[in-house]
Amino acid sequence: MDALTLFGLFAVSGMLATYALERRAHWFILGFAAFCALGSVYGFLQGAWPFGLVEGVWAIVALVRWKHAILNWDTIDAQADSKHT
């Protein structure tokens, strides 16, 4: 197994792990975006530009989802704090 294949395995394994944990914390959504970006780099380096392009789009979508998650978590935290006071 060459270094490029190991890099690709790392990227998609990270995508799978962070996607599975997204509901636990918004940081996993950010991690998913980062691993999607790595998957995009892998796709372009491998010569599979459609894969690289789609993974790049997924990275952008995940960043937008992360931004919305931060806003929602802050709202949820504020609501929880107001109930306890």
Rank of each mutant, 00 (worst) to 15 (best):
A17N: 01
V64M: 04
H68G: 12
A3E: 14
H68Q: 14
D74Y: 04
R23G: 12
L53F: 14
G47H: 07
L45N: 10
A34C: 12
T18Y: 09
A80H: 00
G47Q: 08
L45E: 08
T85Q: 15
L21W: 07
K83A: 03
G8N: 08
L45F: 10
W49D: 09
H84I: 06
G56W: 10
A33L: 08
G14C: 09
A11W: 10
L16W: 12
A78F: 01
D2R: 02
G56P: 13
V61T: 13
A11H: 07
W58A: 11
Q46C: 08
A62E: 09
F35S: 09
D81E: 09
A17H: 04
W66E: 07
D74W: 02
H26R: 14
V57C: 13
G52P: 07
I60T: 08
L21G: 00
R65F: 03
I76D: 05
G14N: 06
W66Y: 15
T75N: 14
A17L: 12
G47R: 03
W73R: 14
A20C: 13
A25N: 14
F10M: 06
D74M: 10
A78N: 02
D77A: 15
F7H: 04
V61H: 05
N72S: 14
G14Q: 11
S82R: 06
S13H: 06
M15R: 01
F10H: 05
W27N: 14
N72P: 01
V61W: 10
W49Q: 08
D81I: 04
D81C: 00
I70C: 14
Y19M: 05
E22L: 02
S40M: 03
K83F: 01
G52C: 04
A69V: 10
C36A: 14
R65M: 03
S82Q: 06
Q46F: 13
